[in-house]
Simulated assay, not measured.
Amino acid sequence: MKSLLTVLKYTLLLALSGALMVYAVRGQDLSRIGHYIATANYFWLGVTMTLSVLGYLSRAYRWQMQLTASRHQVPFWEVYHAMMVGYLANIVLPRMGEVIRCSVLRRTSGVPVEVSLGTVITERVIDVLVLGLLLGAVLLLDFDKFWAFIQGLFADQYDSLAANRGVLLAVAGIGALLLLVFGYLLVRNLEKLRQNALFVKVVAFVRGLLAGVFSVLRLNNKGVFLLHTFFTWLVYFLMDYLAFLCFPETYDLGMRAGLAVLTFGAFGMAAPVSGGIGVFHVLVQSTLLVYGVSKEAGIAYALVVHGAQTLLVVVLGGISFVLSAVHSGKTVNREQLVINSEQ
């Protein structure tokens, strides 16, 4: 039953991606989109893909710093390969890549999943904070353009929420009450729970998770960590900005447009769908529309940029998957030899 629900969930997410892609190209001249893609200057796309590799290396080094701070010394390439396998998994299984890369790291380096997962959570929190700053910068730099865009995007949803405000408040109140009851029962039965094997395992997992989360506070060189964070997001910006040079309609767009595409594109990639497919394309197309780029050129830009990055992740992630599997097999064989020798 659980497997069936999992398949159904991912099928629905894939269907949502497909529906959004259809929405993005609906009513447009497909021949023009094809012309934009066929005549794009792929030299600059190659430059952006090279920058992507540097960005991945920087993120892997930053993750290695977190793992070191959590008292786990892991070779750089093992960290990198685990991360790339996770990115590859996200293309097929939305948001499962974070768990999978931690599982790979456990098999290749012995780092407990809860610890590495804690470091990934910290990484995601930092990314959300950076994304929030970028969103604020975009709205301040082009406030008039994006105020109209946001109003049009959320007007209907706001009216619907306002009309059902009483229902929403009631649901929130019930949720708060249930949370208080749960807290009371937890405190009252805490001694009994401490004797429960499952509860003990959950507590140990949470402690390991928190150790990973707060590892960032124990970094030996916080300046280098911040530098890699800045460099990673700079690479993301340059990837989107230099990709403008691939198409005549986006060639003259400035850095503000690049910052906007980076920000809203990142929201699209963070959506719980396979590789951001559909959501990324709609948001990037809509953002470029704000800057006067036609829908056809906007969706062509999104298709080329997203397609190139997906292809790169498939290639690099596939290589990392093979190398991690080989290394994991060697690790298991060594452990078995040690066990046999002890017997």
Rank of each mutant, 00 (worst) to 15 (best):
G166L: 10
G166C: 04
V167Y: 08
L168S: 08
V171H: 07
A172Q: 06
A172H: 08
L178S: 08
V181K: 07
G183H: 10
G183A: 13
L185Q: 12
V187A: 11
N189W: 06
Q195S: 13
A197W: 12
A197S: 11
F199K: 04
V200G: 11
K201P: 09
K201A: 12
K201Q: 12
A204R: 10
A204V: 04
R207L: 06
G208N: 01
L209S: 00
L209Q: 02
L210T: 03
F214P: 05
F214A: 01
L217E: 06
R218N: 14
L219Q: 04
N220E: 15
K222P: 15
V224G: 13
V224I: 15
L226P: 12
L226K: 14
L226T: 14
L227P: 14
L227S: 15
T229N: 02
F230P: 12
F231L: 15
T232A: 15
V235C: 13
Y236V: 10
F237C: 08
F237A: 00
F237D: 03
L238D: 11
M239D: 04
F244L: 07
F244A: 02
L245K: 11
L245W: 11
L245D: 07
C246I: 05
C246T: 11
P248Q: 07
P248Y: 03
E249F: 05
T250P: 05
L253S: 01
R256A: 08
L259N: 00
V261M: 01
A266P: 05
S274R: 12
G278V: 00
F280R: 01
F280M: 00
H281C: 06
V282H: 02
V284A: 04
Q285R: 11
S286I: 01
L288R: 00
L288M: 02
Y291A: 02
G292E: 00
K295C: 07
E296L: 03
A300E: 06
V305S: 13
